[in-house]
């Protein structure tokens, strides 16, 4: 009887080990395939030149520039909105029914499929506001998509500021606004930024929301204004894999682009992890 119980226990625990090994194995296989097949494609020319001959030669510079601007503009739009919403949810939080509705809205926005953001951007930004298929439409669409992530991170950051800080500031005669702006926000800022950086990784890799709002298949030009169409790294990978007539030349370029995008996303999230680690070490409360 005890032997059977022991046997069951060891089978169960080894099964868990097997599962986690499978997951880790897949991760390494995945990274190996992408970097092995794409690593040799990446060169200085690949990073700094425009695509040539219908994307069978040349580089991905316009896509790097496009992804940079899409990311910067979308975070620039979503970060202030997100921080102010988080301040409302943590510090004012009245009336209660509004808090409930905002909470449901945030949770729903976080779960909406990315393709639906694309349709929303197409209907509202591209057509209703008449921004056309442009950097601006794409950045606003991505900004709305990043908003719930930023709000949740900012809220968590503000809530982790000890209540004593707030009480001490208020007791010294500071107003609520002064307390938020000069005590709570500065204390929470590193954590808020960590959340913002994580959402950068998310925004930079999204494809579906920009398909109909910002991205173009092929251009040799860089965007001159926010009203221009742009190339973007994730969309470029998709286009290389599904359009065009020379798969033998396009697939290696897709791998190369994937290496650049992955390196970018991994770099950004590593920065976030390092910042988070350093904050936790430095924190004295």
């Amino acid at each position: 009887m005890t032997n059977i119980r022991k046997l069951k226990s060891s089978i169960g625990i080894n099964l868990l080990r097997l599962f986690i090994l499978l997951t880790v194995f897949f991760l390494f296989l995945f990274l190996y395939v992408i970097f092995a097949k794409g690593g040799s494609v990446v060169s200085w020319e690949f990073l700094t030149e425009s695509p040539k001959r219908f994307m069978t030669e040349g580089g991905i510079y316009p896509a790097i520039v496009g992804t940079f601007w899409l990311t910067v503009l979308s975070i620039g739009f979503a970060l202030p909105l997100g921080i102010f919403t988080a301040i409302f949810m943590t510090s004012y939080a009245k009336p209660y029914w509004l808090v409930r509705i905002v909470r449901v809205a945030i949770n729903t926005l976080a779960g909406v499929p990315s393709i639906i953001y694309g349709l929303f951007g197409l209907t509202v930004f591209v057509r209703l506001f008449n921004f056309g298929v442009s950097l601006l439409s794409g950045a606003l669409t991505l900004g709305v998509l990043a908003l719930p992530v930023i709000i949740n991170a900012s809220e968590e950051a503000i809530r982790s500021v000890p209540g004593d800080f707030r009480d001490a500031s208020l007791a010294l005669g500071a107003t609520k606004r002064q307390t938020i702006l000069r005590v709570i926000l500065p204390t929470a800022l590193p954590n808020i930024l960590t959340g913002a950086i994580i959402s950068i990784g998310r925004v930079a890799g999204e494809t579906a929301p920009i398909m109909f709002t910002a991205a173009t298949f092929y251009t040799r030009l860089l965007p001159k204004s926010a009203m221009d169409e742009v190339m973007a790294l994730p969309y470029h990978i998709y286009a290389l894999m599904t359009e065009g007539a020379h798969p033998a030349k396009q697939v290696p370029m897709a791998y190369g682009t994937a290496v650049v995008l992955l390196a970018l996303v991994l770099l950004v999230s590593t920065v976030a992890i390092v910042i988070r680690y350093r904050i936790r070490k430095k924190r004295k409360w």
Binding site: L27, F30, G205, I237, M241
Partner: peptide, 15 residues
């Protein structure tokens, strides 16, 4: 795994 862009997963599945 969560940070990898979906289009790169798509590339892996396709190629």
């Amino acid at each position: 795994l969560a940070g990898i862009p979906s289009v790169v997963y798509g590339l892996f599945g396709m190629a």
